[in-house]
Amino acid sequence: MQFVKVKGDKVSVAVAWRGTGKPTALHIHQGAKGTNGGIKVDFAGLIGKEKGKVNGTSRGNGTSKGRSLTGTVTVKDRALLNALKTDPSSFYANLHTAEFPGGAVRGRLHKITVAEFDFRDALGNFQASVIKGKQIYECKPAEGGGYAFAQRDVSAVLGGRIAHSFVAPNSGTPQWIARDGSAVTGAVISKTPNGERNIPELDLKATQSGKHRGLLADTAEILRLNTVGGVAPAGSCTAGAIVGVPYQADYVFING
């Protein structure tokens, strides 16, 4: 998991990793989804590599501890700084290791819309992936006549045994409930298509609906990313029929 902040000519990074070796390099690249792009911000100096300059990036200061790293570099390219703030989805981060010199972990940047947190606490935010989940659809009257499948609910278990569903079937309001009783509901801020066979990625504003202490008690925003599957069946259907379509996704819970 990685967070990036741009303020003035400073670009800060906070990254945590698991299941891979210690990074040998960490970069931000610019490129369309599914393509490789050139290095635009080089964080190599934060992990003890030789001082490098890429597009005006200079060695900064930071700390590496265990399986996490935080730090800041200076970037002099004003156009690049502006693009990082206004169009983050055109960039991706790439973490390299000795075993995977071409990149061990790669992830596209996404804008955080409503949540506000001290960047020093960035790694207190967390990600939970779908362990088992279905998007649930019901055959209902369609605009223009006939019947088609429309969203009725979702039923999923995320990492950490977070339960994910709608507040009530057909309510359109998603909720996430942790084992400790903390819970949030979500309201969609934006949708981003992720291919015809995958449900869209989402940015949602979170509202507290459970206990005031616990895993989700400080959540202010939720990102649904890296979606796979879950698309409603196409074509006509029999009124009242209900189907569950398996899906996968990563949810990022961001504190306010």
Rank of each mutant, 00 (worst) to 15 (best):
G229L: 02
D250G: 06
F3W: 15
A168F: 10
I39K: 11
G37M: 08
L84C: 02
P23W: 05
R59F: 03
A183W: 07
T238A: 14
K211W: 01
T185N: 13
R18K: 14
R197K: 15
F253T: 04
R179A: 14
F117Q: 15
A104N: 00
N125D: 13
F3M: 12
A168W: 08
E116G: 14
L95M: 06
V54F: 05
S64M: 15
N198T: 06
K140D: 12
K205E: 08
C237Y: 05
G181I: 01
S12K: 00
V243W: 10
G181Q: 04
N255Y: 12
I136Q: 11
V54E: 05
V73F: 02
G124D: 15
K65F: 15
E201V: 02
D153C: 05
A148L: 01
Q175H: 10
S90R: 13
G186Q: 02
T113G: 01
G160R: 12
D180C: 01
D9T: 12
D9W: 06
D77C: 09
G159S: 10
T97F: 09
I222F: 06
G230T: 09
V184G: 10
T192M: 10
K191C: 06
S12T: 02
N55S: 10
G146L: 03
G8K: 07
A14E: 03
L158V: 02
V245D: 04
G159M: 13
E196V: 13
H212S: 14
T74P: 07
A163K: 14
Y247G: 04
G235A: 03
A128D: 11
P23K: 04
P23R: 03
D203W: 06
P101H: 08
G8C: 05
E50N: 09
R59S: 13
T24W: 05
G144A: 07
G195R: 02
L95Q: 02
A217D: 02
G244R: 12
G103Y: 05
I112H: 00
G66S: 09
G244K: 11
N125C: 13
V54I: 15
I199H: 02
T227G: 00
K5H: 11
V245P: 10
C237W: 06
R59G: 06
H29K: 10
Y251K: 11
I162C: 00
T185D: 14
E143V: 14
V6E: 05
N255K: 15
A163I: 13
A206H: 08
A168S: 11
G256H: 15
T24F: 02
E143P: 12
L81Y: 03
F126I: 08
K211L: 09
G45E: 00
S64P: 07
R18E: 14
V245K: 05
V13I: 14
G159E: 15
H27A: 01
A98E: 12
C237E: 04
G8E: 09
R152D: 03
S171Y: 06
A168R: 11
L84R: 01
A79N: 15
